[in-house]
Amino acid sequence: MARTDAAAQTAGTSTSGRAAFLTELPRFGMVGLLVIIVVVFSVLRPDSFATTDNIRTVLVESAVLTILALAVMIPLIANDFDLSVAAQLGFASILAAGLPGKQGLSVPLVILVVLAVGAVIGIIHSVLIVMFELPSVVVTLATSTVLGGIVLWYTDGAVLYEGVPASLTDLGQKDVVGVPLPIIYMVVVAAVLWFILERRPWGRYLYAVGSSPVSARLAGVNAPRVRATALIACSVLAALAGLILTARIGSGNPSISNAYFLPAFAAAFLSLAAFKLGFFNPLGVVLSVYLLAIGVNGLTLLGAPSWVEPVFNGLALIIAIGLARLSVGKSRKLFSGV
């Protein structure tokens, strides 16, 4: 899809189609890895792994994480870190459960308010990071802590499950033509992001700012505006992920965000090793989330203890980034952030 025309172009300008094929190969290494994992687990556990139910579970369970990882990825392209995405997801999730339950807001209004709150957080980040030139890591670490505190105040540390309307949970639990809604949301978000990053000038400007903020500015790119937009988009997507989370599980859990922080960043960084080597990219993020999720799911079905999951995730990240370095070579930096 995205790559066919680019691949064709490379094949056209290289000396031989075969050489072009070999140089293109590393880009699809992670796809190959995914296929191998699926085949191996299907052979080892045909009755539990290779079932529609299991596949459906893995896909639905990771949809929220995928949207969050896509959110993290956007400012990372311009070398800005948003460490608060998981806290924003938690905050949005609590609001989505509490606003109808405690404040009695209608569902359309809840959706609007949660997304607007996300946008406001993004604007605050933009002002501090872009306008006042404060380091993004520090700013978002701070807002992350503040949001965690507000969540504690709003919930008293208890799970909010009363009064979450069915019209909201329907949005997270129903199917459309047999496909669970969270998967549809995730596919739409990934597709829109892919389009904007690969097919709109804004996406190119974002990658240009990530490559060199000074050169991009001198080339006439409005670098501050591009970075600010990226931070706002990240926060709105994190809010959307929180909304979908509450819709799916029907409650707001004040401590759920911790489980999302590292996997979201891991998937974003893993995307450097897939498709668009050395660049954060949305298709790579989707692939990375599912590579990790399917790997962990298969290992669990094989009877692996729970500590295997974080070890698997960590090792996969190091191996993937190492492979990306090898295939990209020294001609460019892999990632120029902090």
Binding site: P201, Y207, S212, S215, A219, G220, V221
Partner: peptide, 20 residues
């Protein structure tokens, strides 16, 4: 430091102002 967009290709360096 101020001219090239170092991570990008020659094509992307040339076309950055002509994308519209």
């Amino acid at each position: 430091r101020r001219g090239v967009l170092p991570g990008l290709s020659v094509r992307e360096n040339i076309s950055i102002r002509s994308l519209k």
